[in-house]
């Protein structure tokens, strides 16, 4: 029975692979639920802060925070690139990197210089490989994003914006639509457009302690940070869903491969048996004849 041992070994190895992909699928599924909860938990804060910021920007027309002021000319652009730390999640990171690289090429051709803030290992690795100008980076965020880790890298970009080193700030991440669908998006963070803050809500104003300017400054920074946090949380939910789907596909593929291999194995076995029987029958016929 030629080759039967090889086929058996091969079946065994594919079965082992399938066990791993199956396990990864289940791990991703449970992590995905938590990541989605986290994504939703971050929403009230961002909404609240947006309401307050919208109200204040209308109630305090005499003070314009640098984040709201639109610049006449855009010479330099900053990108906050959110990717996953680990691979094996389908085309998730490739998709977002493709969007970013396309945009970067357009900007380069317009002679704009680009600065990157990389959140997540994959984007960081890619940006170093293409030798892009990295201003700041953070990797190894784990399963739950922490504001604490994000403050520093984001502040580098915000400071660069305030100092005039960049004139626009974008954020790129995977928008979570549902478990099966994630969409790479690139949004402008700075300058903040009036529309993104929404309409004013009445003609009253707050009392401010200590004064309006200090609070507006604090609020604006936190608003941007919360947007970044939200994007990171969303990207993590996308990552887990993408991984789950990718691993499910891998498990299904392994199953088909195992099926095919078993068919080949059984055919070989049957052929060997038939051959043996025909030999015996042939031998018996020769003796009796």
């Amino acid at each position: 029975m030629p080759g039967s041992k090889e086929i058996r070994t091969k079946i065994k190895s594919v079965e082992n692979t399938r066990k791993i992909t199956k396990a990864m699928e289940m791990v991703a599924a449970s992590k995905m639920r938590k990541a989605q909860d986290r994504m939703r938990a971050a929403r009230p804060y961002a909404e609240k802060i947006r309401n307050v910021a919208a109200h204040m920007s209308h109630a305090q027309p005499e003070y314009k925070h640098p984040f709201v002021v639109k610049r006449d000319e855009t010479k330099n652009v900053g990108i906050i690139l959110v990717t996953s730390d680990k691979g094996l999640c389908g085309g998730l990171n490739t998709n977002i990197l493709r969007v970013v690289v396309n945009k970067m090429q357009t900007w380069e051709s317009e002679n704009k210089s680009i600065r990157i803030c990389a959140i997540g290992n994959k984007g960081y690795g890619f940006m170093t490989r293409i030798k892009a100008k990295l201003s700041s980076q953070v990797t190894g965020l784990g399963d739950a994003p922490h504001m604490d880790r994000l403050i520093g890298p984001v502040k580098v970009m915000l400071d660069a914006y305030v100092n005039g080193e960049i004139d626009q700030l974008y954020i790129a991440y995977n928008h979570f639509i549902n478990t099966m669908k994630q969409e790479p998006v690139m949004q402008q963070l700075l300058p903040l457009s009036g529309e993104s803050l929404g309409a004013p809500s009445g003609h009253w104003d707050y009392l401010y302690e200590p004064d309006a300017k200090v609070i507006i400054d604090d609020l604006m920074v936190r608003y941007i940070e919360s947007l970044v946090y939200q994007s990171v949380a969303e990207n993590m939910a996308s990552e887990q869903s993408a991984r789950m789907v990718a691993m499910k596909a891998a498990s299904d593929n392994a199953k088909t491969v195992i099926g095919d291999l078993k068919l080949v194995y059984n055919k070989a076995r049957q052929a060997a048996i038939t051959k043996e029987i025909s030999e015996i029958v042939g031998g018996a016929a020769a003796v009796s004849g």
Partner: peptide
């Protein structure tokens, strides 16, 4: 309402 960026 006490909310933080990470949770309510």
């Amino acid at each position: 309402e006490v909310v933080s960026a990470e949770e309510s």
